[in-house]
């Protein structure tokens, strides 16, 4: 359900208008232009058509976040498959390349909403630290510098957010 008013451009519109820039965000992370195309397409499917019920303050920032995190996940899978090959093992492709199925997008969207709810129960400081860490990709050291607090405290805050997310494990289907 879209909650945007007609005068505001939707996330999908922002994505389309900035597609070239978003492609470059992906391309800086993944190895090939084809993979960058895949990541952008995947991100678009997740973002278009009411990815989020509430209004997002910085729509382009959110688009970049989705592209970057999907691209990093692609890289993770690729590095893992490369290591599998050094073991002389045929990698069974776990995720079929190409765009995610519509029901996967729907299901993922629900899970994202539930994780968001779980995170919203945490203290503000924990949410800020987690946001810098997971959404903006800062290291725990950078976060300590940004927030002007000890690294040990940042470690604890991230661990707290981790715990809350790990508890949502049952939401991921086999």
């Amino acid at each position: 359900m879209l909650s945007f008013t007609a005068s505001e451009s939707s996330l999908g519109d922002v994505f389309v208008a900035n597609r070239a820039q978003l492609w470059h965000v992906a391309r800086r992370i993944v190895r090939t232009t084809e993979l960058a195309d895949d990541v952008v397409q995947d991100a678009y499917l997740r973002i278009a058509d009411g990815a989020c019920d509430r209004k997002i303050d910085k729509p382009m920032g959110y688009c970049c976040q989705v592209v970057r995190n999907l691209a990093l996940d692609h890289c993770r899978r690729q590095s893992l498959e490369a290591t599998y090959r050094t073991f002389d093992i045929d990698v069974e492709t776990v995720d079929v390349p190409g765009p995610p199925a519509p029901d996967t997008v729907m299901r993922d969207r629900q899970v994202v909403g539930l994780i968001e709810q779980a995170l919203s129960q945490l203290p503000a400081r924990t949410r800020v630290a987690f946001q810098l860490y997971r959404l903006d990709g800062l290291t725990q050291r950078d976060i300590a510098a940004q927030l002007g607090c000890a690294l040990g405290l940042v470690n604890r805050l991230i661990a707290e957010a981790d715990e809350a997310i790990g508890a949502m494990r049952h939401l991921i289907k086999d």
Binding site: R46, C52, R54, I56, D57, K58, G61, Y62, Q65, V66, N69, L70, L72, D73, R76, D108, V111, V112, I115, E116, L119, S120, A124, R125, R127, V128, Q131, L132, R134, L135, Q146, L147, I165, G166, M168, R169, L171, I172, D174
Partner: peptide
């Protein structure tokens, strides 16, 4: 499963206004 959960946690839209909070 864990990797998927972690990915989806990365798709949560930001809530906190970090600058205001700081």
């Amino acid at each position: 499963k864990a990797a998927r959960l972690w990915l989806l946690a990365g798709l949560v839209p930001p809530v906190a206004d970090v600058e205001a909070w700081k």
